[in-house]
Amino acid sequence: MTEQKIPLTPVPPLRRIYRSDVRAARRRLTGRIRKTPVFHTAVPGPSGPVPVTLKLEYLQHGGTFKVRGSYNALLSERVCPEHVVIASGGNAGIAAALAAAGMGKTCTVVVPESAPHTKVAAMWSHGAEVRWHGTTYAEAYDHACEITAERGALQLHAYDLPAVVAGAGVIELEIEEQVRGRPPILVAVGGGGLIGGIAAAGGRRREIVGVEPEGIPTLNSALAAGKPVDVEISSITADALGASRIGEIALDVARRYGVRSALVTDDVITDARDYLWREFRIVVELAGAVALAAILSGAYVPREGERPVVVLCGANTELPVL
């Protein structure tokens, strides 16, 4: 009996992201997003005050950097369907709903059962249909794929879509105009859309450091293994940084340009958020304070004379938890 070989489905080649993609995204986003401000200050490190520049990206529309990527993805489509679908634990869904509404389209967000009510309410406020499915992002994503096929919709990915990554990278181009020299940039990492875009824009021109909760080390584990690997999710930041593995695009950029990872504990993340409120009356969600936690804890120590840029990336939280 002749053995029948099952044909393998070809794996599409990785679509690499470069500075040129980020520059094109910036042109598309003109008039759609805010150029968020920076704030020069000093924060306490283990050995004394550390000069830093805070990039106040939490002031972006929708309270999240992800709006940049969602708008860029929609604007990149030559013929964009009237309906948009995305799976999200929170901020990506808010961003997709906001961008879809801004372009006169409808949006469905599939969220896991653990999605915070605050973020679901924000999706509703922008007119999105919200569906709960499964207990993990992966289960929600599978259901989003089904809805996309049924409706002939455009499906966005929360962090591993070229246009989404390029849109996030516009933050780096703004920092170039706002801050002298090329200081390091510290960025929180979940699925990697933010750090992938910022590193693609900066290239080898500057150091980019990904800061991750110890309980969700997606970038750290992938850099060690040389490929994306699944990690256990165990962190208070899971609603925003809850991807179980780094995106292919982000890891490619990180390896090309020497991005490195710093790990911080949940306790330090909480301290960093409390510090921002106590000292500056800045309200961010826990994920928004992750990059600053690396400075406060000493997980990242700037070189002599450096003033690193710390991206505060999101503010979708409930005020009573502060």
Rank of each mutant, 00 (worst) to 15 (best):
V187K: 10
V52T: 12
Y71T: 11
G102R: 08
I147T: 15
G242C: 02
A115F: 01
G169V: 07
K105Y: 07
S70P: 02
G152W: 12
A97Q: 05
F280I: 09
Q155W: 08
T135I: 06
P217H: 12
I233R: 05
M123A: 14
V309P: 02
V231T: 07
P184V: 07
F65I: 05
R307G: 11
R32T: 13
Y137V: 00
G305W: 12
V264A: 06
A100M: 10
I246Y: 02
P10K: 03
V209N: 00
V67S: 12
T108Y: 05
A222D: 04
S261E: 14
S221M: 09
E3P: 11
G298A: 12
A100L: 09
V11A: 14
P213N: 14
S244E: 10
S297W: 04
R15T: 09
V309A: 08
A140S: 04
E129I: 12
G242A: 01
S235V: 15
V309M: 04
G93I: 08
A158F: 08
V211Q: 01
V109P: 08
R151Y: 00
G314P: 05
P12M: 15
D21H: 15
N72R: 10
A240W: 01
P302K: 07
C107L: 02
P46Y: 02
S20M: 13
V50R: 05
V321Y: 08
E285F: 01
L173Q: 10
G69V: 08
V22C: 08
L296P: 02
V22R: 06
I147Q: 11
P228M: 05
L98K: 15
L154Q: 11
S221Q: 08
V110S: 13
S76E: 11
K35R: 14
E279W: 09
L319S: 03
G258I: 03
A24D: 14
A238I: 11
P320D: 13
S244N: 13
L219Y: 04
G167C: 03
G45V: 11
Y58E: 07
R68V: 00
D230F: 13
R273G: 00
N316P: 13
G63Y: 09
E212L: 03
C313A: 09
L54M: 15
R16D: 09
E248K: 01
A144T: 12
V253R: 15
G69C: 08
L8I: 15
V253Y: 10
A163E: 12
F39C: 01
V52M: 03
P302G: 09
W124T: 09
K55N: 04
E212R: 03
K105A: 01
P162C: 00
K119S: 07
I198M: 10
A101M: 12
A243M: 10
N220M: 11
Y159L: 07
S234W: 12
P37R: 07
V43W: 04
H61A: 12
E150K: 13
A224Q: 10
V50M: 01
A200W: 03
G314V: 02
